[in-house]
Each structure stands twice: as structure tokens, then as C-alpha cells.
Design a protein around this nucleic acid. Structure first.
Length: 654
RNA sequence: GCCUGGGUAGCUCAGUGGUAGAGCAGCGCACUCGUAAUGCGCAGGCCGUGGGUUCGAUCCCCACCCCAGGCUCCA
């Protein structure tokens, strides 16, 4: 909604963004109504004067910036509701976040909120919305602000921070002003804005949960009561969003893991440690076998390394210096010798490399291991198979010359995309993490060369690339592959990381063609990330209906009556001969019940065999996700179809 | 670690200051069926653990353990 210059010129002097909207005949209320404006790129209230702006863009709540304004305003309404219900409550910050907003409160007497309070807060919010209170902006000096928020310690702290920024920063000399938004005589909040013009523009919101959250995210500071909510510009979009949340819950891999009898987390073992049941074990083995085959075909060599090691190894690697918090505490053995359970495979693979002198002729050397590692995660952060204390990485370390690095990175990306394709994941973006500010191992030149190499391989494949400036680890730049799942969430899967640190720490070398000792480049990479987490992602992506090649049972054969069992067995034999995993579900229960059970187990092909099939050599075929079952399908053609589907792995067949 | 919610049968959950219930799953018997739940019966419980209050605690109080969600997104 750009506005031509002449229309701006035609407006009254002192015109506001809202006047522009009116001149354009835009609605004041409703989902498409503007909620804010961009004046030369700066997001402001509709009540802001447009004087001097060359370009005015009206922003509706249907775009992300506008929706954030709507949510932020809803957060203010929530803060007002909470301060009405808990007089004396202080409030900290209340930003819009992905998919919603939150506000942090400190209630009088250290009171805490419970889920039951959410309904009360929502009810009060609805009243505030129906009162249609204006959001009016005021500007104040810092001193006025401190007085205005005399009873609000967190707001005062924020103002003090602004003061010290202003005096210490480069903008010295300009006295900063504060903006506040006043809704009525009682509620005024320190806020940058912008906001919707009045609370009546809001209303499609839902409070979702309460949580403790530390002030400034610092566990040494007070814990505040955080209320999360979400808001949309229409009831329909809100309902859709809530339905999506339910859908995500139905796809929860922990729930599916139990329902499909794949794995469990027995309390006896401890937090974040899974056991795989036979069916889950089968899926896992299929993934791991496929991984081994891919790696062998890609020129990788399998190595095996122990799960525990003396402290020395992690002292040399530096892990004990900067990663000790993430490691299980040591065991004391052999007269005070400290042993650690390994949190990473890399130092072991380095020892493989260093086990003898290496020649440039051996490079690139690609070492692969399905390496199980253990990391100490705080008890509150473990989550199903996605955040665990024990996990198996499909971990490789590649040692190559600097000249070989671009080609190696290129082949790694081929492998990554190929492998992920086997699992039907084909919607990705890449995230490039570059050199962090301050200390970083390696020279500028090395960083630049490596970062460029990573960037150009990703770009060469036309992949969407997001740069996380300064987000790399100190030991080298990284690219991660983020896969989007069926309901639009993204998950970090593969990572490719250059490392300038470990080759130096371990003194790695090779002898070059010129007979000089050189330092190899080291690349860490994992394709799944971890087998456990990758399985969790697949389960959530497919809502449990895994690609046929990964299904523990691919074909269930259901004889209608006992006397069809012999025929069912013969179909079973033909399936297994064709390499399909099949089972016969005998006729000791009604057919409907058996079909239901197989369907709930997400078996991709349910076959019913009765008189007609015995006579004709056919099966009744009920496909997973199919509309109607098919009768009288010749056994041979069914097997051909199923075998082709399994062989295609996760890829759509032409 | 901290905040919130929760731990009752294998699973999902109901319940009360007077020592417990449902559905599903399991087991037995009968049923032999053409596309998402056949019927009847049986069995199954240290009501998370330890203390306390009480004549009596699964229930009330305290402590602990475990599980889930949250604790990055800056007025």
C-alpha cells in the first residue's frame, strides 16, 4: 500500500498516518484494517504525523509486522488486566514473539499464577477490549519516566539502562526521551510502540500457559511469572492456529513412540535416556544400515571408538575447558585416574588419524562412526528423543588439504541432500554461521576462505541460505540444514562444521608432495544429527505413518475366516520372498477389529483375503491413506507395487 | 537449578477423611465374520517415596523423588 507523493502533498499540514488511510478509504476496523504505518521504513502509530515522510506504507495485521503490533498491543491489554486483578503487580517486558506474545509479571507477595488464572485474565481482557480504550502515546524525559514508574522496579531498571547507554554510547549529547502509552487513568506502560489505535481493534486472542521466567533470562535474578498468549486479526486465524497446536500435540513423537511400540523412557534408567523396543529397534536398524551403505558408497571408512576415556583426551581437545558443564562428571579409576564418558566423537577420530604418519596421498580421509555419546543436559531441558542425555550421532570427520576443502564440502552436500531425500524431507533452508566477534581460532584468511567455501556450495545448489552473522563457534564456521516438516516447523538436522582448532591442538600433520609437513583441514559433519532425534522428527513429520521402507510391518494379511489361513500364508510367503515385511493376523477376532488395529498401527498395506481371493489368486487391498479398499487385486501386481514403493524409499515415485 | 501443572491397574483417566472405580489393553470361553471396536467372564492397585496431623490418610500438612510445559526473542 504505497502512497504516491502527490496524495501526501494534498493532505492537511499535520496530517497523520490515519488520515492517509481515511483518504484511501481503508476500513478502520476488521482484519484488513491498517494497525500501524511505515514512514520511510520506520514503523509508527497510525496517530503519528507524516510530515516530511517521503513514503508512507500502511501496515495491516495480515502482514508479519502488523501482526506483531497487534500481539504487542494485546500483551499490553493483558498487563492491564493483570494489574487490575492483582493490584500492586509490577510488570517487566511484554514483547510479541513468534506465534504470539508474552508478558512477565511480579505479583504482590511473590504470588504465582496458575492455569486457572488464565480464564480470569482473559475475561478481564475482553472487558478492556469492549471498553475500546485508546492507546495514546506520550513522550517524557528520563527523570519524568523514573517518577512515572516509581512503583515499577523493572521499568525503572529499563530506564536506567537507557540512561547509561545514552551517556556511555556514541549518541552522547542527545538527551534521550522515553515513550509511554497510556490506556486510561490507571494503566500506563513504558513502551517503544507502536500500538493499534485502541483496544477495540483487538479481541481474537487466547492465553496459552504460564511459566516461570528469569528477569533478563538470568537465573541469578528474580523469577517472574510469564504468561504466554497468541492473537490474530480474525477469529478464523486464531482457531486455525489453535488447531495447529493440537495437531502438533497429536504428532508428538513421545506419544507416537508409545502407541506404535517403538521406544520408551523408563524412569529406572533416568531422564533423557531411551530404550528401543523391537519395532523401534527395527526402524532404527534400517536407518543405520542405510546410513552405513551410503557412507561406504561415498568413500567413508568405518571406525569404532570407545565410550569412555581418560581425562587427558578431553584436556587436549579443550572440551574440559569449555564444555565440562555439558559432560557427565568423571569416574575415578586406577588410583585417581579420571575417566569421562564421551560427549563427542571427534577427539577419538583424530587419534585414528594420528595413529601414524599420514601422506597427502591418503587425503581426503573420511572417518565415519555411528558414535553414541552422552551429554549432561539439565533435568528441566530434556525432551523425548529430541533433547536427550544419550544419543547416537552419524558422525564423520574428514581430514583433507586446504585445496581439497571446496570439493569435499561439495560432496558432503550431495550426500546430505541425497540421504535426506530417502526420508522424504525435501523442504530445507541452510543456515550459515560466521565468525563470532572477539576471540576465534584461526586466521582471518582461513575464516574467509572456509566461510566462502561453505557459502558457495550452498548457493551453487540454489538452496535458500540464511546467514547467522557471528553465530559460529570459535573454532570454525558452520552450515546447518534446517528441514521444514509437514506442519511448517523447522528442525535443525545436518551440520557441517569447519574446525581450525582441533588440528592445531592435536598437532595433526601430513607430508605433502613437496616433502613438507602440512596441517590438514578438519570437517565435522553429521547428516541425521543424531539417529534418535532424526527418528523423532520423522515421526512428527509423518504423524507416525513412516515411509514404507521404514515401516516395521509393511503388509498385514487378514484371512476372513480360519479356512482362508492357508491361502493367507501363501500370500505371506510371496511377500517375504519379495523382501517385504509381512504378518498374518489370524481370524480369531472380527475382521473390523483387526483392520482397525492394523490401521492404527499405520501399516501401509492391509490385505483381506477371503473366498473370492482364494479362488482367484488375489487380495483385497486397503492402502494406508487410500480412500476405498480395492477388491480382487492379483497378488503379483500388489507385490510389484509394494516392492517398488519400498525401493523408492522416501522419494515420490514418478 | 527455578516457576507452573501432574504422579491412582500395563495405558488414558475419574474419585472420596472411613483402606478404590471406568474405558482400553491382558487372560479364558464362545463367536468364523469381506474393510476402522463381537459378546460374556476373569484377573489386575504400597493410590510416587518418607515423615506428620487424625480413632482412621489415596485424600489434609511437610520434605523428597519422578514426569510434562516454560525459563533466547529486550522498554
Amino acid at each position: 500500500m504505497d502512497l504516491a507523493g502527490e496524495l501526501v502533498a494534498g493532505l492537511e499540514p499535520g496530517a497523520k498516518a490515519a488520515d492517509v488511510a481515511r483518504a484511501l478509504g481503508l476500513p478502520e476496523r476488521g482484519a484488513g484494517a491498517p494497525v500501524a504505518a511505515l514512514l520511510d521504513g520506520e514503523l509508527v502509530d497510525l496517530g503519528a504525523a507524516i510530515a516530511g515522510a517521503r513514503k508512507v506504507v500502511l501496515v495491516p495485521a495480515t502482514v508479519p509486522e502488523g501482526r506483531a503490533v497487534l500481539r504487542h498491543s494485546t500483551a499490553h491489554v493483558m498487563a492491564q488486566a493483570v494489574t487490575d486483578l492483582w493490584p500492586g503487580a509490577s510488570f517487566a517486558i511484554g514483547p510479541a514473539v513468534d506465534d504470539g506474545f508474552y508478558y512477565d509479571f511480579e505479583l504482590p507477595g511473590g504470588a504465582t499464577l496458575t492455569d486457572a488464572d488464565l480464564a480470569r485474565i482473559e475475561a478481564r481482557m475482553a472487558e478492556i477490549v469492549s471498553e475500546d480504550q485508546p492507546f495514546s502515546r506520550e513522550e517524557h524525559t528520563l527523570e519524568d519516566g523514573l517518577a512515572l514508574f516509581a512503583g515499577q522496579p523493572y521499568k525503572r531498571e529499563i530506564i536506567e539502562a537507557i540512561r547509561s547507554d545514552a551517556s556511555g554510547g556514541a549518541g552522547g549529547g542527545i538527551a534521550p526521551t522515553l515513550s509511554v502509552y497510556r490506556n486510561n487513568e490507571r494503566f500506563v506502560d513504558l513502551c517503544r510502540g507502536p500500538h493499534v489505535p485502541s483496544t477495540g481493534r483487538l479481541g481474537h486472542f487466547k492465553l496459552l500457559r504460564v511459566a516461570g521466567a528469569y528477569w533478563r533470562g538470568d537465573e541469578h535474578r528474580p523469577q517472574l511469572q510469564r504468561v504466554y498468549g497468541t492473537a490474530f486479526e480474525s477469529e478464523e486465524l486464531l482457531a486455525e492456529h489453535l488447531a495447529r497446536l493440537e495437531e502438533a500435540e497429536a504428532r508428538d513423537h513421545r506419544r507416537l513412540g508409545a502407541e506404535l511400540d517403538l521406544f520408551s523412557f523408563p524412569r529406572e534408567i533416568g531422564s533423557g535416556l531411551a530404550i528401543f523396543h523391537p519395532r523401534g529397534g527395527l526402524v532404527r536398524r534400517l536407518m543405520e544400515d542405510a546410513s552405513r551403505e551410503r557412507h561406504a558408497a561415498g568413500g567413508y571408512e568405518s571406525v569404532f571408538t570407545p565410550h569412555v576415556t581418560k581425562a587427558e583426551l578431553f584436556e587436549t581437545s579443550g572440551h574440559l575447558e569449555w564444555f565440562a558443564d555439558g559432560m557427565f562428571p568423571p569416574m575415578e579409576l586406577d588410583e585417581g585416574q579420571r575417566y569421562y564418558v564421551k560427549p563427542m566423537n571427534c577427539p577419538f577420530h583424530i587419534l585414528v588419524y594420528r595413529s601414524r604418519q599420514r601422506s597427502y596421498r591418503e587425503l581426503p580421509m573420511r572417518l565415519f562412526e555411528l558414535g553414541t555419546v552422552y551429554r549432561y543436559e539439565k533435568s528441566g531441558v530434556v525432551h523425548g528423543l529430541t533433547r536427550v542425555r544419550g544419543m547416537t550421532q552419524d558422525d564423520s570427520h574428514i581430514f583433507c588439504t586446504r585445496e581439497q576443502m571446496p570439493a569435499e564440502l561439495s560432496s558432503i552436500f550431495d550426500l546430505v541432500l541425497d540421504v535426506l531425500g530417502d526420508y522424504g524431507l525435501d523442504d530445507f533452508y541452510m543456515e550459515l554461521s560466521t565468525r563470532p566477534e572477539g576471540k576465534a581460532a584461526g586466521s582471518d584468511e582461513e575464516w574467509e576462505e572456509a566461510t566462502d567455501a561453505l557459502r558457495s556450495v550452498a548457493e551453487g545448489r540454489g538452496l535458500e541460505l540464511v546467514v547467522d552473522e557471528g553465530g559460529g563457534a570459535f573454532y570454525g564456521p558452520k552450515i546447518s540444514v534446517q528441514a521444514r516438516d509437514a506442519i511448517g516447523r523447522s528442525w535443525q538436522v545436518s551440520t557441517v562444521q569447519l574446525d581450525f582448532q582441533l588440528p592445531r591442538r592435536f598437532g595433526l600433520e601430513y607430508v605433502g608432495a613437496d616433502n613438507q609437513r602440512q596441517r590438514p583441514v578438519m570437517i565435522h559433519r553429521a547428516l541425521f544429527g543424531t539417529v534418535e532425534r532424526f527418528l523423532a522428527i520423522l515421526l512428527e513429520h509423518y504423524a507416525g505413518a513412516l515411509p514404507v521402507w521404514l515401516c516395521p510391518v509393511q503388509v498385514a494379511i487378514l484371512p476372513v475366516r480360519d479356512d482362508h489361513e492357508a491361502y493367507a500364508r501363501s500370500v505371506y510367503e510371496r511377500c517375504t520372498d519379495a523382501g517385504l515385511r509381512a504378518e498374518v493376523d489370524e481370524a480369531d477376532e472380527p475382521l473390523g477389529a483387526r483392520i482397525r488395529r492394523q490401521k492404527m498401527a499405520k501399516v501401509p498395506y492391509v490385505l483381506v483375503v477371503g473366498d473370492e481371493d482364494v479362488a482367484g489368486g488375489t487380495v483385497g487391498l486397503n492402502r494406508r491413506g487410500g480412500s476405498k479398499p480395492e477388491r480382487a487385486v492379483p497378488v503379483g501386481s500388489f507385490i510389484a507395487e509394494a516392492a517398488a514403493e519400498a525401493a523408492s524409499k522416501g522419494r515420490a515415485r514418478a
